[in-house]
Design a protein around this nucleic acid. Structure first.
Length: 152
DNA sequence: GCCAACGTTGGC
DNA sequence: GCCAACGTTGGC
């Protein structure tokens, strides 16, 4: 089993939004970065655990846990000219972009803030806290995962 | 293939 | 709103 961190702007889609979905699941559409795509397309497997991270908000940090319930499929929002994430270079015969589906597991008891994560020497290698990292999906090591959960 | 211009991300 | 750090685009 692998561990991941996925960023979302709570104004657009928050952990509560995920929890309120009918099946508490949602496909992670709109990713338009090749590194992040490759992880979803090639590496994220059913059962993998995901930290749900809120970005671009008053308190950026990890707010909950989700898990992968469906492996990669073409991101259909890329095919829709009316969609915000439309990409004319992607087509159904040869999709450029992919997405996985995640399911709500639980919220953390509190937000583990970016500021707090940055202070931990144990997390110095976590992609999230490395200089200039803008990836919206990134791997988390098992030890990092366990350490972060102990902060809760 | 280089690189300047531009757009985006996301913390602050 | 600012701006650093990227990634992408496109002229050459």
């Amino acid at each position: 089993m692998n561990f991941w961190l996925m960023k979302s702007e709570p104004d657009a889609f928050s952990i509560d939004d995920l929890a309120e979905r009918p099946e508490q699941t949602e496909h992670w559409d709109g990713v338009r970065n090749y590194q992040a795509r490759n992880m979803m397309r090639d590496e994220m497997k059913i059962g993998d655990q995901v930290f749900f991270y809120h970005s671009n908000c008053s308190l950026p940090g990890i707010v909950g846990i989700a898990e992968v319930v469906k492996e990669s499929q073409p991101d259909f929002t890329a095919f829709d000219p009316n969609d915000k994430h439309f990409d004319p270079k992607s087509n159904p015969d040869k999709p450029t972009w992919f997405m996985v589906e995640v399911k709500f597991v639980r919220k953390l008891l509190r937000t583990i803030s970016l500021q707090e994560l940055k202070q931990k020497t144990e997390l110095a290698d976590l992609a999230l806290v490395r200089r200039g990292n803008r990836l919206s999906i990134m791997p988390v090591g098992q030890q990092q995962w366990d350490f972060i959960l102990e902060l809760e």
